[in-house]
Design a protein around this nucleic acid. Structure first.
Length: 278
DNA sequence: CCCCAGGGTAGGG
DNA sequence: CCCTACCATGGG
C-alpha cells in the first residue's frame, strides 16, 4: 500500500514505475480515454472526473486533487490495493509470462465504470484501438457533460437511452451503432441491471451480459475484467489467440491466477513486440 | 486491389 | 458441434 503525500494542489504517490507504469497501463488497450501529453504526463477521464498525472522514477503526481478524491476514486481505479508483485512472482515461473512481465511489469488492471466499459467494448469488436478511441471521444463530445479543458464525461445510460437510432448511426460506428442502441435501452428499461451483474456469480454475469446483442464471449470477458474487476475473466482476442497458438498449444495453464492479469501482460507483450524477444 | 483491427450474428451443414 | 459469409469503417 502506498500513501499519498500532499504536494502543491495535488498528491504525490511514491510508487515506482515497475509497480504502476502509466504509459503501459493507460495505453495497453484496456481503457480508451487517457492520452500522453509530453514526458511522463498523462491526461484522461474516468468515473466522470478529469485527471492529470505526471510520472517520474520516484513516483506519480496526481494534479489538482484532494486526498478524499484520491481515496474515493483513484486508489481503486488504479487497483492499488492488489498485490501485483506477488502475481508477477508467481507468473514468472512460466517462461513466456516471465518475458511479458519483464517487458512491461508495471501494467495494472484498471477498475473502470461498468457501463462505459460495456459500451467501449461493444465498439471494440472487429475494430482497432485508435478508431475505438475516436468513436468514444465523439460520443462524449456530443452527449457527455463538460468537465472543462474541452473534455467531456462519458454520458449516462439515461442520456443515451433518450437518443434515436439515427443519432447512433451518425457516429461512424459502422454496424455497431445498433448494438449500442439496443444495449442502452435494455439498461434503461431494466432488462439489464449492471448493479445486479456486479453481484452475480461469474458464469451468471457472463450470461447476463451476453443477452446484449453484440456481446459475445470475448467482449463479455473484457467487460467483466475491466469494468467489474473480475480478474478471473480471460479475454481471448486475435493477439491472445496468437499467444495461445505459439506458447500454450495445450491451453493456458490453470495455475497462473488471476488469469485476467496474466492475460493483460501477455496481450500487451504480443501487441507491442509480437513476442519477438521470446 | 488486398489485408487487418481487443468479434459477433445468422444460417447451413 | 463445426464452418462460412457478412457486417461498416479506416489505416496500411
Amino acid at each position: 500500500m502506498y500513501n499519498p503525500i500532499p504536494r502543491g494542489d495535488g498528491l504525490f504517490l511514491p510508487i515506482p514505475p515497475k509497480e504502476l507504469n502509466l504509459a503501459d497501463t493507460l495505453d495497453c488497450g484496456q481503457c480508451f480515454r487517457f492520452a500522453a501529453e509530453g514526458e511522463g504526463v498523462f491526461v484522461g477521464i474516468a468515473h466522470g472526473r478529469l485527471l492529470r498525472l505526471t510520472q517520474t522514477q520516484e513516483g506519480i503526481l496526481f494534479h489538482d486533487l484532494s486526498p478524499e478524491e484520491f481515496h474515493q476514486t483513484w486508489e481503486e481505479y488504479f487497483d492499488l490495493r492488489t498485490d501485483y508483485a506477488a502475481c508477477r512472482k508467481a507468473f514468472s515461473e512460466d517462461p513466456t509470462l516471465a518475458e511479458a512481465v519483464a517487458f512491461a511489469g508495471g501494467i495494472r488492471i484498471l477498475r473502470q465504470d461498468p457501463f462505459e466499459t460495456l459500451l467501449s467494448f461493444l465498439i471494440s469488436q472487429n475494430n482497432n484501438i485508435p478508431r475505438i478511441k475516436a468513436s468514444i471521444e465523439r460520443i462524449c463530445e456530443r452527449f457527455g457533460e463538460p468537465l472543462g479543458g474541452d473534455r467531456f464525461a462519458f454520458p449516462s445510460p439515461q442520456r443515451l437511452a433518450a437518443l434515436s437510432p439515427e443519432d447512433f448511426s451518425g457516429l461512424g460506428l459502422g454496424y455497431r451503432d445498433a448494438y449500442l442502441c439496443d444495449c442502452v435501452r435494455r439498461i434503461a428499461d431494466g432488462r439489464l441491471d449492471l448493479c445486479a451483474v456486479a453481484r452475480m456469480e461469474l458464469d451468471d454475469a457472463r450470461q447476463a451480459l451476453r443477452t446484449v446483442k453484440g456481446v459475445g464471449p470475448k467482449v463479455a470477458e473484457c467487460v467483466l475484467l475491466f469494468g467489474f474487476g473480475r480478474t478471473e475473466a480471460f479475454p481471448v482476442d486475435t493477439w491472445m489467440k496468437k499467444a495461445l497458438r505459439l506458447y500454450y498449444p495445450q491451453g493456458f495453464p490453470e495455475r497462473y491466477q488471476p488469469a485476467g492479469i496474466a492475460q493483460q501482460y501477455l496481450f500487451h507483450y504480443m501487441r507491442t513486440c509480437g513476442g519477438a524477444t521470446a
